[in-house]
Design a protein around this nucleic acid. Structure first.
Lengths: 214, 214
DNA sequence: GTCTATAAGCCGATAGAC
DNA sequence: GTCTATCGGCTTATAGAC
């Protein structure tokens, strides 16, 4: 059931997401968020305790998708499969949740002052897991010795940039917004840099099968 | 000669740079900038017309270094040499001008509302030049067919991330700040992804010499 | 649950003494 | 050129009628 309450909260969250992404937390006005959501300003405060609480909910909305993007690392798979699926997921998030992505990026850029310790820990734990996974591939000889930390930083940056720096992308490509083919080209470019850069041989058996053969 | 005027302007600019990088334009208070610079607040207004003028000067201070980083593309050189030098320069900027880099990133993220048309055009023209240069290398068979736009986006993102998302880098690596060896590892990782990802053969003659041989 | 009308406080900017 | 003291506007947040 979609109550009025849920519908209004959703409208306000969506408007807030765009507004915070556009202007940043401090420069965003609750009156503008209310206007964009099509509700009077006091209603924003009726549904959300404060501007900061509203911001926190927007921020929280992106944590789950970000953790989900690492799913390929949590299943057995060979490096090529896992990394390709991961890059796909990250690009998809940049495309489908651009506002929340920007809010997250801005939050991190300013030292994550609103991120709860628990959220930071969840994200960090997943990052450590992914890095350990890459380290294992290197030890198993499935890829070249590429620093796993810096590899992850490059993948994050290269995929996030399509949400965070969309203005730059639009200016340089001369396109107001990217289409399916552009996102596919972006994905394939990043995949290529990673796969060839790490000298990963494709169509190998998955890591778990690999282990049984050792 | 270093007049008191120049010294004070410099102190205020440095403080403003850090403050804007830390909190963003809207959340930064001129009183905090004054305090950080060690001058009374009205002096900030004596040297700079307004908070916005101060911000514009900080922003301007990073434009020249950013354009300079593309110098390798403006001289003859083969792909490996040019791209390596470029990545080196970009990482160096992230390391040596982290605050101004963040201010620039934040500005771009919010659609570059304070960037003058002239500045935007300068940066875009240089980007177009670099992309055309890469396109020529592809046509000359010096590197694989990798979409030049997306290649540039990946290089920008991967190098900028060390300034913009330093909190994330610090959290994941567990180091408060990176040392020489870390920056060297970062640079080499990005260079590797680019050189091998684009299948660039090293130690080839430079592009200009290449032309004479055709 | 909804909205008008207003309070409260913060911050950019400056007047004016030194 | 420097700084104290203060103004004025803007924005968050709420009281209270409907």
């Amino acid at each position: 059931m979609t109550s009025i309450r849920e519908r209004n909260k959703e409208l306000i969250l969506r408007a807030a997401s765009e507004e915070f992404a556009d202007k940043g937390f401090a420069a965003s006005k609750t009156s503008d968020i209310a206007a964009k959501a099509g509700v009077p300003k006091p209603n924003v405060y009726y549904y959300f305790k404060s501007k900061e609480h509203l911001y926190r909910e927007v921020l929280e909305s992106i944590i789950e998708p970000l953790l989900q993007a690492s799913a390929p690392f949590n299943q057995p798979g060979n490096p090529a499969e896992v990394l390709k699926a991961y890059i796909h997921s990250k690009i998809r998030i940049s495309r489908e949740l651009p506002s929340a992505s920007k809010v997250f990026a801005s939050e991190i850029m300013h030292g994550a002052p609103h991120l709860s310790a628990e959220q930071a820990e969840q994200l960090n734990a997943q990052a450590q897991h992914n890095i350990a996974c890459i380290q294992r591939w290197i030890e198993q000889g499935l890829m070249a010795k590429v620093d796993p930390h810096h590899l992850m930083f490059s993948i994050w940056a290269a995929t996030q940039t399509y949400a965070d720096f969309d203005w730059q992308i639009a200016t340089v490509t001369g396109k107001a917004s990217l289409d399916d083919a552009d996102y596919e080209a972006a994905t394939q470019t990043i995949i290529r840099l990673v796969i060839k850069g790490c000298e990963i041989v494709e169509n190998q058996p998955s890591a778990s099968e690999q282990v049984t053969r050792v």
